Amino acid sequence: MRIVLLTGAGMSAESGIPTFRDALTGLWARFDPQRLATPEAFDDDPALVWGWYRWRAARARQARPHAGHLGIAALETLGHAVSVVTQNVDDLHERAGSSRVLHLHGRLLASRCAGCGARIDPDPIVAAPPPAGDGAREEPPACAHCDGGRFRPDVVWFGESLPGEAWNAAQEAIVACDLLLVVGTSGLVHPAAALPLHALAQGTPVLEINPERTALSTRADAAWPLPAAAGIERLLARLDASPEADPRTLIGPR
């Protein structure tokens, strides 16, 4: 079976990574996250923005994949063709063992020059030493490949376009899949929120796994009011019991 998973912040929250809009702590309690996630913010105060993302990257590296991440990776070992389309910027899907992960909003644990796009190894956003305590301002490294460039997080900021290659690959995966799972996402962030609607329009079964109801809940073929780990565990159990089941039968009625 060709399975696509669209995962959002609720997926990573079970590993202890706060959602983007969760309350900040320490130094960062004084700042609005959305004002730290724009190109203009980086231009105005690069040390503040770089320091905040270094702090976020350090926290993400401390997190561990949970049973839901591991369950998604296990779908591949069962012989299914699995694509993970994630709005999350951490690397928990990869660390769990998923081999095809498309990052729509970029990668928190990577950086690039804001001027020329150059990258260096080791990546400075995860360089030692990690930020102390709750983080602090840090001047971003200067780029050695261009004049005046500074390194920035390799994430999609407000007002920026999604990476074209990942977005095109996500759309292609949706078109080709037999089942779409929408896990831990509010469905409020566009254009990713449109992907389940494309699947429904072409007749592809859509299962939502989310403890909270969303705008998709009444439109999906089935909506399981479960956290990510519990929902994936249920899916694996059903696949184990009926490995040849039709996708609609597998996920059950709404």
Score class of each variant (00 low, 15 high):
Thr7Asn: 05
Gly8Asn: 02
Ile17Arg: 09
Gly26Glu: 03
Leu27Pro: 12
Phe31Ser: 05
Asp32Lys: 14
Pro33Gly: 01
Gln34Tyr: 14
Pro39Gln: 07
Phe42Gln: 05
Val49His: 09
Trp50Gln: 01
Ala57Phe: 01
Ala58Ser: 13
Gln62Asp: 15
Gln62Met: 12
Arg64Gly: 06
Leu70Cys: 11
Ala74Lys: 14
Glu76Lys: 04
Leu78Asp: 11
Gly79Thr: 04
Ala81Phe: 09
Ser83Tyr: 11
Asn88Thr: 04
Val89Ile: 15
Asp90Tyr: 09
Leu92Ser: 04
Leu92Arg: 10
Ala96Cys: 00
Val101Ala: 05
Leu102Thr: 00
His105Phe: 03
Gly106Trp: 04
Leu108Arg: 09
Leu109Asn: 02
Ala110His: 11
Arg112Met: 09
Ala118Val: 00
Arg119Phe: 09
Gly133His: 08
Glu139Cys: 03
Glu139Arg: 14
Pro141Gly: 00
Ala142Val: 09
Cys143Tyr: 10
Phe151Val: 00
Phe151Glu: 00
Arg152Asp: 04
Pro153Lys: 08
Asp154Pro: 01
Leu162Phe: 07
Leu162Gln: 08
Pro163His: 06
Glu165Val: 12
Ile174Thr: 06
Cys177Glu: 06
Leu181Val: 15
Ser186Lys: 09
Pro191Thr: 02
Ala192Cys: 01
Leu195Thr: 03
Leu195Lys: 07
Pro196Trp: 12
Pro196Leu: 06
Pro196Thr: 05
Thr204Phe: 06
Thr204Tyr: 09
Pro205His: 07
Val206Asn: 07
Leu207Pro: 02
Ile209His: 04
Asn210Asp: 05
Pro211Lys: 14
Ala215Cys: 06
Ala215Thr: 14
Ala220Gln: 03
Ala220Val: 01
Ala220Met: 02
Pro227Thr: 02
Ala230Val: 08
Glu233Ser: 10
Glu233Cys: 01
Leu236Glu: 11
Asp240Arg: 15
Ala241Glu: 14
Glu244Gly: 04
Arg248His: 13
Arg248Val: 01
Thr249His: 13
Arg254Asp: 11
